[in-house]
């Protein structure tokens, strides 16, 4: 929902904290999830994730989530799907060139990132979206990434 996602951006710092907790919690659950099998978890978790993130961020389930680097404003809501915005077409009132009634997703991203502790991530260049991940759970993917990183650093 448009209003909810704008509200989230205004509270980006709180959502950053919640997201960090969520990540830590899920990483702790890794041994359990591994036992159940990620493959088996994929579908139910993706449905749950879609519900939560759909409500909060108007998530499009690209599966390649970059919310923490975009001020908690989902860049897939940009009509041009720009992962490194804002484009040069932003109207003088800060609205989108394609949808004049909508606030530019990247205006929000810049605003949101400024109150986040890891807000500097907005300056990193985002690589092209991996479209094979469409519809899959970004949370489960992230957990596995973090676990792999932890294992590598402990070696």
């Amino acid at each position: 929902m448009y209003k909810v996602r704008r509200w989230v951006v205004r509270h980006s710092q709180a959502f950053e904290t919640i997201y960090n907790w969520l990540e830590q919690g899920l990483v702790k659950l890794h041994p359990v999830m591994q036992k159940i099998g990620y493959q088996r978890l994929e579908k139910p978790v993706a449905i749950f994730e879609k519900l939560c993130k759909g409500l909060l961020f108007d998530c499009k389930m690209c599966g390649d989530c970059a919310l923490s680097a975009t001020g908690m404003s989902c860049s897939m809501n940009c009509p041009k799907n720009i992962r490194n915005g804002p484009c040069g077409g932003v109207r003088q009132n800060g609205n989108c060139e394609v949808q004049p009634e909508m606030r530019c997703v990247w205006m929000d991203a810049w605003q949101g990132s400024q109150s986040m502790r890891a807000g500097k991530q907005i300056h990193a260049v985002q690589l092209p979206v991996d479209h094979t991940l469409q519809g899959s759970s970004a949370w489960l993917r992230k957990v596995r990434e973090v676990v792999v990183k932890q294992e590598q650093s402990s070696k």
Binding site: K80, R83, N84, G85, Q126
Partner: peptide, 28 residues
């Protein structure tokens, strides 16, 4: 370039691709 949205031109019915953006295009 990322490019203008299709709504700006003479074929607003077209499907916009936007697989890459200007930044990832540069990288590519």
């Amino acid at each position: 370039l990322t490019g203008d949205g299709v709504q700006a031109g003479d074929h607003p019915q077209a499907k916009a691709v936007f697989d890459l953006d200007c930044m990832s295009l540069l990288e590519t």
